[in-house]
Amino acid sequence: MALNRDFVGRTYEASATYEVCRVKIKEFADAIGDDNPIYHDKEAAVAAGHPDVVAPPTFPIVFSLSGASEALSDPDLGLNYAMVVHGEQRFEYQRPVYPGDELLCTSTITEIRDAGRNEFLTLRSDVTSTTGELVCRTYNTIVERGGAA
């Protein structure tokens, strides 16, 4: 089913902030097979010039869709989640993510288009700290396979 183009331009704010913790950073680093001590050991991270362990570059995928999940499951959008695969992902960092960061994610649907038999939906998410500082920006494109058929 074609996605509802009326959703382009809509913005969604996560209902709660995401609080980053050391345990989650370690779990995520383990999952990508990364044993770099700056992800696992505060002392090693401090020795490398960080205030604490630091999150791997792709870590914001854990929370960056939290604002948009409600929109993506809205029946009016018409997204068949069973046919969804990840199409593209980019991250732009203002600074690394650290434990104790309380991050708010605001997502905007920037584009919905079809290519061949597939529908493509792109979200831009601004990840900000509690002081309003932009920490990183993520761009996420999901593909609904066969959605445009």
């Binding site: 770099n36 700056i38 010039g49 791997p56 593209e88 980019r90 991250f91 732009e92 960092y93």
Partner: peptide, 9 residues
């Protein structure tokens, strides 16, 4: 890690 400003695919 701290060197990475942007990444994606």
């Amino acid at each position: 890690r701290e060197a990475v400003l942007e990444c994606g695919a």
